[in-house]
Design a protein around this nucleic acid. Structure first.
Lengths: 159, 159
DNA sequence: GCAGGGATTGACGTGTACGTTAATATACGT
DNA sequence: ACGTATATTAACGTACACGTCAATCCCTGC
């Protein structure tokens, strides 16, 4: 039997800032800083402003961290990437509901911008992949040389 | 006829700091800073300390820049990578001259360290490649969706 | 009902990687 | 030989991305 409404039954994953910090390896300060910079915004608050993070929020947080650590993006660059992702999500919602309350011309412009930004990112990623790949191969070759050198040393020692 | 001593005849490429800056897109300040931090050291000076950069120096400079920009390495991390490369070069020289004036035990230790550091770097590069690759594919998919969305819009407009 | 753990908002401090300016010296083209 | 472009060191300034208190405020378990 398929649990048809598993998503509906699943406990709404809401985490406090400290839990998010532990799960992601970040600090609470960092999370507040990112929010201060407009990169994230916890989906809800409680009481006197206690932040509550949903699974979506978590995904966004880890995405930011990945962009930062993997690609060395500054928060400004991360912001640009996230904006095009937002447009993408927004666009899918609009497509479903079909009744766009956003003027077609404006939506078209947003789309074009998102496409351009996205293409630039892909191009950048391809460049990074190529260069890192080349570097990796180079280091692998170095690895072989070093190991050969070590064997030679060991042979000498046993001669 | 093969120019047997092309390297010897070739004009020794020595550049002044400003030329290196223009060629690499860095600033003179950055080059001096890197030197201050022990990452580079121009192969020669002239007069009252005017820096002169050889082709080897240039290679090292661009290497540092690549590590920084492509992989988001800090200068501290770059330093580690460069050190293992230095050992590699040093090791090849030693292999050629065979008469190592460095004690075998010490050389062995350096080699082991270089190998370990190198392997770690390769592993790190592989992780980066995998993640960036996944991210790239994701963005490529996004690209398709956005373009489809735009065609749909255009079709609507012409209906 | 209160100690303790975790949350909040300021506010100020810090490390990295340079930018900028100043005063001065040297190299290069004509 | 001389002006100008480029170099030098030294010192201070700055942007980014947080770290680190401090004072206060909930909420929970015993």
């Amino acid at each position: 039997m398929i649990t048809r409404n598993a998503a509906a039954e699943a406990p709404p994953v809401v985490l406090r800032i400290g839990e998010v910090a532990k799960l992601t390896g970040l600090t609470t300060r960092t999370l507040r800083y990112w929010e201060e910079q407009g990169l994230i915004s916890p989906s809800s608050y409680r009481g006197r402003g206690e932040r509550l993070y949903s699974a979506t929020d978590m995904a966004r947080v880890t995405r930011i961290r990945d962009l930062q650590e993997l690609l060395g993006f500054s928060l400004a660059e991360v912001r640009v990437v996230l904006e095009t992702e937002d447009i993408d999500v927004l666009d899918r919602v609009r497509s479903e509901y079909r009744a766009g309350n956003v003027p077609a011309a404006r939506r078209r412009r947003l789309l074009d911008e998102a496409i351009e930004a996205n293409d630039k990112l892909v191009a950048r990623l391809d460049v990074a992949l190529a260069r890192i790949g080349a570097f990796r191969d180079e280091r692998a070759a170095t690895s072989s040389r070093l190991r050969e050198s070590r064997s030679a040393m060991d042979d000498d020692a046993n001669a």
